[in-house]
Design a protein around this nucleic acid. Sequence first.
RNA 1: GGAGGGGUCGCAUAGUGGUUUAGUGCACCGGUCUUGAAAACCGGAGUGGGGCAACUCACCGAGAGUUCGAAUCUCUCCCCCUCCGCCA
Length: 415
Amino acid sequence: MLDIRFIKENPELVQDHAKKKGYTVNIAELLELYAISVELGQKQDALREEKNSLSANQSGGRPSDEVIERGRAIRDEIQQNDEAALAATKAYQDILWQIPNTMQPDVPVGGEEDSVEIKTWGEKTSGAIDHLDFAVKRDWVDFERGAKVAGAKFYYLKGDLALLENAITQFALHLVLTKGFTYMTVPALVNTKTATGTGFTPRSSDQSDEYFIEGEDLTLIATAEIPITGYHADEIIDEAALPLFYVGYSPSFRKEAGTYGKHARGLFRVHQFNKLEMYAFTTPDQSLEVHEKILAIEEEIWQAIGIPYHIINIASGDLGAPASKKYDLEYWSPVDDMYRELTSASNCTDFQARNLNIRVRRSETGNVETLHTLNGTAVSLARSLVAIIEHYQNPDGTLRVPAVLQPYMGGREIL
RNA sequence: GGAGGGGUCGCAUAGUGGUUUAGUGCACCGGUCUUGAAAACCGGAGUGGGGCAACUCACCGAGAGUUCGAAUCUCUCCCCCUCCGCCA
């Protein structure tokens, strides 16, 4: 969520950015409800002050009937006001939670088609066999048995393709580790507080993309970003420790309801995939630079593997609530003759951190402030396999192994 | 899952209804002393909200309750420890 005081000082800005992101929120109503909440809170505080002074004057034994009578009256009044005060607080907070993060000045305004290409790398080629046809012929992937065992869009990876997935993970992990990241594995299920704090919709929402465990306060993670964000919840981190870099490996679960249109075939969009995710906790003044660093690592990975791509600066309408700016790395698909999303890097500034109460203690002043969080995909495995099959296939049905992955495939050059 | 024991301001602890809006030790910051440091002594210091400020409110795992008054009593839940059960 945003800082209510920031909203109070910049109502037009917040309203404008929310609109550009495609969110319908009423800032004027929010501020009105907030004012009511503060006013009721002040009233309660005054009553509590009197209550405290009454009991502070007692030194043991039973106070006079008068004092008890006054105490009862105060207690009842506090209780009566409490309902309205809590309702007012909830009313403004309900709106506050719906307000998306503000954006950085260089975010393009508009919908998906307004995202701006800022860089291209590699050669666009054309004409390749669809990854699913290619892989099924080699008995490398089995969606039919996935459906039998779990449901549509679940799958098995088999043999060399499963081994290649492991090789990609190992290669990317070792590369990221040279950049100062700490490797962690994470809980694949998280509680509601962690999921919603990271910016994912709760169980109650019909738009939720997450799977929920019935009868438990548990959500299957859609990305390791969720448990890593929660890792430092309710902590105050010394400035000297920042930036903190983590790289987490986890399965990712997504319902992907209503996305059965284009590009739904095969491994590109599935209900479960493995992912290696980079994550950073930074001071507010470090996050812009770290965002570029994370993007640079993503580029380094995909240049090393040898997949042509471009980088786009995601337009406002496609950013989502938590991100203040987002880069996508889209690889060039010689099957579809278009770019398709492969990885993503977001600067969520203090939006997630405020939800989960993650702060930094400044070295010089000792002041405490909300820190910044960033996340970026190192490799998203199912999609990585699609890209590699499309670009490294041979006409005879064999697959070349990208040179940097060969050490992780026992030196094999052809699969 | 069962039984028992616990969760207190960074760490360690005191506190079983009213000068506790939480004491003490360690660590931390400032000062005295010292050539400098250590030690000793003096003082300061939690997080969040409201207020221009003085100041004030909330927070002792979370929530609810009893009471004029709750860290302290009651209930529910969460987490940790020990033992048992189950199990990679």
